[in-house]
Write a protein that binds this DNA or RNA. Structure first.
Length: 741
RNA sequence: GCGCUUUUAGCUCAGUUGGUUAGAGCGUUCGAUUCACAUUCGAAAGGUCUCAGGUUCGAAUCCUGAAAGGCGCACCA
């Protein structure tokens, strides 16, 4: 308000421009309206685009599957970055006339979800899953997922993501369940899935196995004990595992122990009395560590298990699935390992077998990153995918691996990246991918939880049956385990398109164009999709992988609850708008590099949205009497060309996945060139009626249109909202307008 | 241990194939602004481009080495 109480002079409407422009851009209001418009149009669905003549029926397909967020989760900045990047690619492809499809979905996240629900139930009712029973627990989980599914879906929508919701998929819905069963059966029939006793990562807290990749190593300080073991000294942080240790291992070239022969036995005094130890010479013993001698616990250590297998040694379980010592521990049997440790050390001290104790030993302990506890390796009968086993590929469209060739899953995964049938951006991740493959062991896919895809195998005394449906006849019992969540995720590109049915979608949209995700799940997911898709449909799942960085706080720290530095995307959206939130996650974020995000950045881009709003207001005010046939002066034509050049360059950057550079360029053109220079220069010209003015009006209008189109993939809401208020335009919705060329 | 990655203004980062006086945003200082702008516009200050060598007419950019952060994998008796 001005001093005399009248309206400030800028709030006026003498040019008859839309009312909305008289106020600053209001994201909350405009975003809601704009989203409704997009939803009504149905143009996220490529079929509708073709039906309405907006996409040519024979146009090049362009598809992306959304990495499905966990059903039970809420939107975080990582999701927001992913949605922003993929929506940019999708909107850009759509505006370029491609047959564009972006498939939404959610993931059941077996372990994480069940762990969460179990924890909640225990907190409220002090009941465990065994108290409730399988059926009741599943019911509770279903209720919980149904409820939170709506939450995550709505949050995804607020970002402005132009996903085709008519094709929404959930990893546990009927179609996807069937696909997972089919995938298992086919791999089983090909001999690529087997059941075997192997050492696995056991989580005593969640009572399930966990895959190698889901293990997170944490530093921990524990005492390190040196014990007298006959004539030797052995070291350990885990005295509680030592009951069964009856092999003493040393390097064959270790001269200190040249006098001991492989297979020689030695009688010695141990925790619960005299034992006979056998000398084993194996190169796994490191001469430089401690005394160079170690005892092994094959049942509870991966490395020890391998040594035992090499030499055909006895393997005895010492600790049970809940972390309780077994009868082999003698007087300590029945105790929990946590409590037993100090008692064992006490006893060894009393027996004079403790050489020394290093109190401040820092080492890594394995934990389950999916909300579980400390990992205890155990030998268990589990299901595995054989990655090194040769098989004949029954159908293949991949070059270099023709139908009928003998290959292995590992070779397949390597080959398609080596031959660039799958490109990875940034390129450096290819090396990391190869390294991972080279170290890959058979993949443990069974989990001892209840929520998930149940293993389609039935047993009846000695019979084993594997099939998508239960076998006929009485007495069959289904395997109680469910599949690793990444098994179902591995077929995501094909299951979302309707596989194993030979759907039109599958034919048109597979392989997908791009798989876009954070680099942290390159192994979990990207590599597994290549494996599964290669075997099941003989195609790569995607032609291009684009890996974005992790979103960190302004100081580069990981966002976490304990640091209290979490920036909530929904919070940013409500304060500054979805467009500003998107831009803050795009500009300055080079591929594969972590993004440092601070609220200031988001605020800055809100100003830009408002700038665009006011540019439009100015142009509309100045062009209310535009002559659309006016001839452009040479200067004005040059300015239009300049805008086109800018878009051309930005397009190149988008094609090369440098969205950060593209967005930055357009941003600067619009603000510094268009608003600060071109519009400023135009003001005097627009005051004088005549040819120069008519030309200026057309030029301003043209550049506005180009700017809106070029910005649309990056900030879809404000550009569409503005577009809707333009009197002259070449498409009803900016979303389906043609990309300027 | 193996590998990747980062280091450019007070802060966050651009700088794509080597090419005039190295750029932007934020911040700081000064100024303008009733006439598109819950602001905007203009200007200033601020950099031995981590360090040491090398290639070159010319290096922030290419090569070698070092230092300091970050990350992954492996080891962890």
């Amino acid at each position: 308000m001005s001093k005399d109480g009248s309206k400030p002079s800028h709030i006026r409407n003498d040019a008859g421009i839309p009312e909305a422009f008289l106020k600053p851009y209001n994201p909350a209001e405009e975003e809601l309206k704009t989203r409704a418009l997009w939803d009504e149009s149905g143009y996220a669905n490529p079929d509708k685009m073709i039906a309405d003549g907006l996409t040519a029926p024979d146009a090049e397909p362009y598809s992306i599957v959304l990495p499905p967020p966990n059903v039970t989760g809420t939107l975080h900045m990582g999701h927001a970055a992913m949605l922003a990047i993929e929506d940019i690619l999708i909107r850009y492809a759509r505006m370029n006339g491609k047959k564009t499809l972006w498939i939404p979905g959610t993931d059941s996240a077996a372990i994480a979800t069940q762990a969460k629900v179990e924890t909640d139930i225990y907190k409220k009712e002090k009941q465990t899953r065994y108290d409730l029973g399988r059926e009741e627990l599943m019911k509770r989980i279903d209720e919980f997922t149904e409820e939170s599914k709506a939450t995550i879906i709505n949050q995804v929508r607020t970002m402005g993501a132009s996903l085709d919701w008519s094709r929404y998929a959930y990893t546990l819905d009927e179609t996807r369940y069937k696909a997972v069963m089919e995938a298992f059966v086919r791999m089983y029939d090909a001999g690529l899935i087997y059941r075997g006793n192997r050492i696995v990562n056991w989580d005593p807290k969640l009572q399930t196995t966990v895959s190698d990749d889901e293990i997170e190593y944490l530093e921990q300080k524990d005492p390190f004990y040196y014990f007298k073991y006959g004539p030797f000294v052995i070291g350990t942080v885990r005295p509680e595992t030592k009951f069964g240790d009856k092999y003493v291992v040393m390097h064959p070239n270790d001269e200190r122990y040249a006098g001991y022969k492989h297979g020689q036995t030695i009688d010695l005094e141990w925790i619960n009395g005299p034992i006979t130890a056998t000398v084993i010479k194996d190169e796994a013993a490191n001469m430089d560590v401690g005394s160079g001698v170690m005892t092994i616990t094959p049942a509870h250590s991966g490395v020890d298990f391998e040594i035992a297998q090499r030499h055909g040694l006895d393997i005895e379980q010492v600790i049970d699935e809940r972390g309780i010592l077994l009868p082999i521990a003698g007087e300590f049997a029945g105790q929990h390992i946590k409590k037993a440790r100090s008692l064992i050390v006490e006893k060894l001290t009393a027996k004079g077998l403790v050489e020394k104790i290093d109190e401040n030993y820092v080492h890594n302990v394995a934990t389950n990153s999916r909300g579980g506890g400390l990992i205890e390796p155990q030998i268990k009968k589990q299901w595995f995918v054989a990655v090194n086993k040769e098989f004949t590929i029954s159908h293949s469209e991949m070059s270099g691996i023709p139908t009928g060739t003998m290959t292995t899953l590992k070779k397949l995964m390597r080959h398609v990246v080596e031959t660039q049938q799958v490109k990875i951006a940034p390129e450096r991740f290819e090396k990391i991918y190869y390294h991972w493959i080279d170290n890959l062991r058979d993949w443990n896919i069974s989990r001892q939880i209840w929520f998930g895809h149940r293993i389609p195998v039935w047993y009846r005394s000695d019979e084993v049956y594997c099939g998508t449906e239960a076998p006929g006849g009485d007495g069959w019992e289904q395997d109680p385990d469910v599949l690793d969540t990444w098994f179902s995720s591995g077929i995501w590109t094909i299951s979302t398109l309707g596989w194993p049915e030979e759907t039109a979608d599958l034919k048109t949209f597979h392989p997908t164009a791009v798989l876009e995700t954070g680099y942290d799940i390159l192994f979990f997911w990207v590599a597994r999709m290549v494996l599964m898709s290669g075997f099941l449909v003989g195609q790569v799942p995607f032609k291009q992988v684009y890996l974005h960085g992790l979103v960190r706080d302004g100081q580069g720290r990981k966002m976490s609850k304990s640091l209290g530095n979490i920036i909530d995307p929904l919070d940013m959206i409500s304060k500054y708008g979805a467009d500003a939130t998107r831009l803050s996650l795009i500009i300055g974020a080079a591929p594969g590099m972590d993004i440092k995000l601070s609220e200031d950045r988001v605020r800055g881009y809100k100003h830009f949205a408002n700038k665009l709003w006011n540019i439009t207001r100015f142009v509309l005010e100045s062009t209310h009497d535009i002559d659309v046939d006016a001839k452009l002066s040479e200067t004005d034509a040059k300015l239009v060309t300049e805008a086109h050049e800018l878009v051309k360059n930005a397009s190149k950057n988008i094609d090369a996945f440098r969205l950060d550079l593209a967005a930055d360029e357009i941003y600067h053109f619009v603000w510094d060139r268009f608003a600060a220079e071109i519009i400023e220069e135009s003001k005097p010209i627009l005051k004088e009626p005549g040819e120069a003015r008519a030309s200026r009006q057309r030029m301003l209008h043209k550049i506005l249109i180009i700017s809106l189109k070029a910005l649309h993939p990056f900030m879809p809401y404000v550009t569409e909202a503005v577009w809707q208020k333009l009197p002259q335009k070449d498409a009803e919705l900016l979303m389906v307008a043609k990309w300027p060329k």
